[in-house]
Computed example of a mutant assay.
Amino acid sequence: MSLTLHEPRPLVTALFESLDPMAADELAAEFETVTAGRRTVLFREGEAGDSLYVLLSGKVKLSRRSSDGREGLLALIGPGEPFGEVELLDGGPRTATATAVADARLARLSKTALYRWMARHPEVAEQLLRAVARRIRGNRATVHDRLFSDVPGRVAGQLIQLAHQFGVAEDGATRVVHDLTQTELAQFVGASRESVNKVLAQYASRGWVRLENKCIVILDDAPLALRAQHKRRR
């Protein structure tokens, strides 16, 4: 599958909220918008990083492969979130593979344009560093959970996180369309598909969630939040 290019369009993102309106409009013109069909690879781990992206709609997963070929899902990017910025700061290769898991629209800014704007507007660099710091903090939290949490706790925590990102209120419940396969959802938790499916079935039997295709409806978030906080409790 290939990317489809479109004309630049106005972009609003926390990365550039410090700019005055005129400068923000000028910067928006530097972006190109692209559409990517489901399963389109935007960039691969190990490639040179030549641009950053801001997701406008859809979902993108960031993943890495271990030395034995297993894939781990690092993050699920939602609308308004930037990604691919780390490599523009340190000059290294891509640290992850970015793949659209649902039809996506994105804004892309080249490294050359970004550096030109950071030289003229130091506040852009400051906002970019903050975005990188938030991502590092989130990655550390993920590593901590995978080291010290049991699978039910990790599942509960990921459901709460996905609800914050993608949840939509629906008749007293929260519908979370994650667009992940069962395997990808298990990779996100950092456990086997069988163990994650078993936990989800348990949560469904307790009336906490309802399972649908690439979607989870959270019926009662209180016990999930409690289970996520007390990860070692059986």
Score class of each variant (00 low, 15 high):
A204P: 06
V151W: 08
H6L: 09
R105V: 11
G153N: 03
P8W: 00
L52I: 02
L3I: 10
V155R: 02
R105L: 11
T33H: 12
V196M: 01
I136D: 02
S18A: 08
R39Y: 14
R232T: 13
D25C: 05
E71P: 03
L109V: 09
G46C: 08
R9P: 03
Q161H: 13
E17M: 02
V217Y: 03
Q158V: 12
V199I: 14
R108L: 13
D50W: 02
H6F: 12
A204N: 04
Q229E: 15
A225S: 14
A131F: 02
A113S: 12
N213L: 13
A113T: 04
T33F: 08
E126C: 05
R227F: 12
Q229N: 10
G207L: 01
R137V: 05
E71N: 02
A29K: 12
Q161N: 04
M22I: 13
E126K: 06
K198S: 05
G153P: 07
L11E: 00
V12L: 04
K111R: 07
L185T: 05
A28D: 06
T174I: 15
H164R: 10
V168I: 07
G172M: 05
G207R: 00
T35W: 05
K59P: 06
P82W: 03
A100P: 01
M1F: 05
I77F: 01
S110V: 07
R232K: 14
A225G: 06
P8N: 03
A100F: 01
S67Q: 13
L52E: 01
E170P: 00
A104K: 06
R120T: 09
A100S: 01
F43I: 14
E212L: 10
S66Q: 15
T4A: 11
